[in-house]
Design a protein around this nucleic acid. Sequence first.
DNA 1: TTGCTATATTGACAGTTATCAATATAACAC
DNA 2: GTGTTATATTGATAACTGTCAATATAGCAA
Lengths: 85, 85
Amino acid sequence: MTLAQVFSALGDPIRLKLFTLIARDPSQEVCACSFVDELQRSQPTISHHLKILREAALITGTKRGTWVWYSVNTEALSEVREFLS
Amino acid sequence: MTLAQVFSALGDPIRLKLFTLIARDPSQEVCACSFVDELQRSQPTISHHLKILREAALITGTKRGTWVWYSVNTEALSEVREFLS
DNA sequence: TTGCTATATTGACAGTTATCAATATAACAC
DNA sequence: GTGTTATATTGATAACTGTCAATATAGCAA
């Protein structure tokens, strides 16, 4: 939850892509399997990165059925923007 | 110079403190020795972190005499802010 | 030149991290 | 119940990173 933790979470290329994919389409269903194809990483690796983004409070995931819907946490984003200004 | 590189540079607690110290007082002379005292790290470690911030284009250092003056690169900052909005 | 000081680089090492294979868990359909 | 699918966790390993001691470089002063 620290600011360094947030920056560190975004500091990995795979996680930055994950974050932008989620941020770009917050209304749609996103499942890890699509990320696997898109980012060329194994399912456990994607799951690992999603966890780090979650722990940094950058995204939230809610499970509906077997799928998980992800969306960005806009509050965390504004905090970071505020720091940078 | 990638966005991930910028976030990664800010993702370390020591570097985040270095960056805020420089950003908070951009007009003043800053020398690594003061950072050594302030951040409780050895001079080579501070120098190493400053290099990473420089390579991420977050700060620029100009040498005048034996001291180095550091200031933040405002262009890089706006780029990051733009990404987050 | 010699000496002093601020910063950078090198080398080594411990701790961390990104990755995948294997396995586990959870939720659905039958 | 069984079977299937989506996601999470565990364990192992290679690669990376933060750190300091030692050394090098650069600039000033005498």
